[in-house]
Amino acid sequence: MKSEVLYPGAFPMVRVELVSGEHIKAESGAMVGSSPTVDVESKMEGGFLGALSRKLLTGEKFFFQTLRASRGPGEVLLAPTVPGEIVILELDGVNEYMVQKDGFLAGADTVNIESKMQSLSRGLLGGEGFFILKIGGKGTLVLNSFGAIHKIELKPDQEYIVDNSHLVAWSATTSYNIEKAASGWVASFTSGEGLVCRFRGPGIVYIQSRNPGSFGAWIRQFIPVSE
């Protein structure tokens, strides 16, 4: 699997080259175009119950699609639903990433994806919901974000504070706590930040430059109210 990001910026697309017989998994509905040698299959990753739990719990689509170059080499074009950047990671088999539910776009078949329940406080307050994806294994992983993706590198014990709901992915070696943005509750919410996540290294945190929830709230005011 060789991949490159086309048109980097707000409306990017990924081109993935597959050798004959190779296959990748992608978020269902992500395929834009492909060579005629590539077949689209839907596959319930982790079996029926796994897929069901992922659908019910993370809100992630029930099926991933499998794109298989079954009749010779070919290429696939993939794009996310929302405007925003795409980042390609190479997983080394040891590093694992936690990915918020909308962040996964595609991955090599050797990449493992599982739903994971967060703790109550992280689930309620972290802005990613109770269930996130834990992605490990070895191979290429393609993530997408809403807005631009910013990478934060943390040395051991280095800390960084991220507004909740700006998170895209973070390595499993980091840990985070939910905190009030300001010292008092009132100041926390009147500042517009509310709750933040305090990350502690080592590891990498990918954040998105836009907050989908806030964008939704903003756009809602322009939608005409129907009778």
């Binding site: 040891v94 590198e153 390595s171 290294g201 080592p202 590891g203 990498i204």
Partner: peptide, 18 residues
């Protein structure tokens, strides 16, 4: 080479070296 741990330090990448 099949790594089983991640090593962090000044000269390693932030994601850790397998």
């Amino acid at each position: 080479f099949s790594p089983n741990a991640l090593c962090f330090g000044e000269e390693f990448p932030a994601s850790g070296a397998p």
